[in-house]
Design a protein around this nucleic acid. Structure first.
Length: 496
RNA sequence: GGCCCCAUCGUCUAGCGGUCAGGACAUCGGCCUCUCACGCCGGUAACGCGAGUUCGAUUCUCGCUGGGGUCACCA
């Protein structure tokens, strides 16, 4: 799609400063992660600065615990920040609730210059006005017109509870050239005197955001396009403050598969859940990057490739829908790109969760990786797939009933005998020896394989038989085959 | 409803006036095979509608329809 874009992507821009400014109200939403990612990529690509800022001015919903979740999420993803909580920086503090004096200062300036005013209207008055508006049957949206906008007299009690409102212009047009959406024009007649500061000094979003972005020197403001409604008021603020206006990049949102706003109901939305599900940070980044951004036909990207190839001009303008299956596929691709050592190391915590305590350099674990790799998509899968190499077999009920039957008892015993003298006990010689025996005794592999598989792994699905034998080692292989033979012999003949 | 954004296979997308409309996930066949995977081969599947502009529109313009967002002392 051809679209003229903003100047923020111009290489002439001397310094790139971008920020991610989540509000800590729970988990870090994967939609937010995508915004953070694009900003981070942009900063890294340009050797710029990535700022993390906490927007905690909503006292009702913000919690310290949520801040920790945000930080933990960013750390896990590897989206490191150059300025922000814990690392500091020259433009701090980086938590909005600690910047109240700065907002107050800017608000006073706006009052002094006549661009803002104290409004003593009560919530009840506003509610009444809204109701009257609805009853009037007008087609326009509701805008509260404060009587204090034009009052020159002092209130009876100037210290009474009041907010500070912006004196919004009613005429003209506010425009910007969005990095992803192109040129946008908003009529100022649709603006209202939005609130800058609450009675308690907490800034509202548009004000806090602008004051922070300008004092922090942010050059590109990237956010979801649900914020587009906020951009015109913010530009108005920059203009009246006489400061440069940053570039804006409004990216389409991530929707649920059914097109609704993505929430817990539809998918795991907290990014840490993916860590617990055994996903790789790079896979999360890859999937999210590709959801709404493209680079030709390429689907799989390393972190470094993302940094090199990202650009706002390749961010699409349509909302993307969350697709769990594609996400899983991308995760599988990334897992399979890893070395055996890396897969082993990253699987350790998941094995521990299953009660299997092994070291990352455990030789048995390392030997299993090549065989589970094509069968695993997540680390949860890996832990599950190597289970029987580290503990006694637990027979799958159906597999046991079907394959550990009297008929197979002899086969299992003979297989054990055939395999016993093989040296080295590796898949090549094992394969050759067993195949020779099968040919000689005119037994099809099929009738041997499944009982043996259940005997050694407890399951009907596993890596190749000889691979399993090799990893298990001679001793355990023989033990399991013979133990299973006993169980098989004792089993009731299925009444056919 | 006002304002804003958006519109190519089921999904993510490529396409930037002339293509058999390409890729990926999913799906359906087949191959491989000791199971399950992996892998490989192949199939089904899309330009929302209507006007223009043009020799020619998926592509440019407008309208319609449809979807989304937003109308807070939330962010």
């Amino acid at each position: 799609m051809t679209r003229s874009r903003g100047a923020g992507s111009s290489p002439a821009m001397s310094e790139v400063r971008v920020r991610f400014a989540p509000s800590p109200t729970g988990y870090l939403h994967i939609g937010g992660v995508r915004t953070a990612l694009y900003s981070w990529l942009w900063a890294r690509q340009h050797g710029g600065t990535f700022i993390l800022r906490i927007e905690d001015t909503d006292r009702e919903r913000s919690t310290e615990e949520s801040i920790q979740i945000v930080l933990e999420s960013m750390r896990w993803l590897g989206l490191d920040w150059d300025e922000g909580p814990e690392v500091g920086g020259d433009h701090g503090p980086y938590v909005q609730s600690e910047r109240l004096d700065i907002y107050a200062d800017y608000a006073e300036r706006l009052i002094a210059s006549g661009h803002a005013y104290r409004c003593y209207a009560t919530k009840e008055e506003i509610a009444a006005a809204r109701e009257a508006h609805q009853k009037s049957g007008t087609k326009d949206g509701f805008r509260f017109e404060s009587p204090w906008r034009d009052r020159t007299d002092e209130p009876d009690d100037p210290s009474a509870r009041h907010v500070i409102r912006f004196r919004a212009p009613h005429e003209g047009t506010t425009s910007w050239v969005d990095e992803v959406k192109g040129k946008i024009d908003i009529l100022n007649s649709t603006q209202q005197d939005f609130i800058l500061l609450r009675p308690d000094g907490m800034p509202l979003y548009n004000f806090g955001c602008v004051v922070d972005d300008l004092t922090m020197g942010v050059t590109v403001v990237a956010r979801g396009d649900d914020h587009m409604i906020n951009t015109a008021p913010q530009i108005l603020l920059y203009e009246t403050l006489g400061t440069p206006v940053p570039a804006f990049a409004h990216m389409p949102m991530v929707l649920a598969p059914n097109g609704e706003k993505l929430s817990k109901r539809h998918a795991a939305v907290g990014v840490l859940e993916y860590r617990d599900m055994g996903y790789l940070p790079d896979a999360v980044l890859n999937y999210l990057a590709r959801l709404g951004w493209s680079h030709g036909d390429q689907e799989i990207f390393t972190r470094q490739e993302l940094i090199e190839k990202f650009g706002w001009n390749r961010v699409g303008s349509t909302a993307g829908r969350y697709d769990a299956k594609k996400f899983l596929h991308v995760q599988a691709e990334h897992l399979r790109m890893l070395s055996d050592e890396a897969i082993a190391r990253l699987s350790v915590p998941f094995l521990a969760k299953n009660g299997i305590e092994v070291e990352a350099d455990d030789p048995v674990l390392l030997k299993t990786i090549p065989y589970v790799r094509p069968r695993a998509e997540t680390f949860v899968d890996v832990a599950e797939a190597v289970d029987y190499f580290f503990r006694e077999v637990e027979f799958d009920a159906k597999g046991k009933r079907k394959f550990l039957v009297p008929d197979s008892a002899q086969t299992l015993l003979r297989l054990a005998d055939v395999v016993e003298p093989v040296e080295p006990f590796t898949k090549g010689p094992l394969d050759a020896t067993v195949k020779a025996w099968l040919e000689e005794s005119e037994l099809p592999m099929k009738v041997v394989a499944q009982p043996a598989r259940v005997a050694m792994t407890g399951r009907t699905r596993s890596p190749g038989l000889f691979e399993v034998m090799e990893v298990l080692g001679k001793e355990k292989t023989l033990m399991r085959l013979r133990a299973a033979a006993e169980i098989a012999a004792a089993a009731e003949t299925p009444s056919a």
